[in-house]
Amino acid sequence: MAGQGASEPALFTELEVEFMAEDESINIVPNVRMDTLNMICGDYGPFRPQIPVTVPLWLGIAMKKRSKCRIQPPDWMSVERLSEVLEMEREAPREFQPLPFHYVEIAKLLLDNAREDFENNYMVQSLLEDIKDVRWDKVEKGLKNLSGRTHAVKLKNISAMEVNRMRTFTVRALQSFFKHDNDDMMKQTPTDSDSQSTPSSSDRLPRRTLRPR
């Protein structure tokens, strides 16, 4: 009917979204001494035992894998903060609570690679799962409100993974609404006798080319 081709994959793969998240900052506590790293992505360090230092997530995880540091869990990943967020997510069905844009990926990377650095890792993980579910539920409910009158959608505090997951469907739905709205306009213009021919007179109407399927 409306879309182009069968089911399209998400625009970014999960790994690509994760790649982007790996540039977010994280605090680590090194247990080794190492000079400042002058890298293309920036300068980090110097590293001194027991002195916390901020690094990109990928660097923290690389060091963690070699047991050269401990990860300091970010504030928002404490059981206390996450419980608060979950409660607020439930209380406010029409809005998303502020969390890092890449919270899903950061949490996954940290819990996969530095599980023992979290005091209540089991609790943290289950809270995060609940938060993810509540938020996704809101996304789905929000999608039901899309209509032909939707010309802009504002998404405050939505996260990267949520965007990527809802993108294909949302874009297709909005495209169809837009297309059919403009189809209505076309029917009202009497110039068009042959339904196959492309209206070329008006710039306002979308040009329609036959696409190979």
Binding site: V163, T198, P212
Partner: peptide, 17 residues
């Protein structure tokens, strides 16, 4: 065909985030 109707063009009326 009056136009080059077999040339694939991007759909600029798609939606972006």
């Amino acid at each position: 065909s009056e136009e080059n109707d077999m040339i694939v063009e991007p759909n600029l009326d798609t939606y972006v985030f």
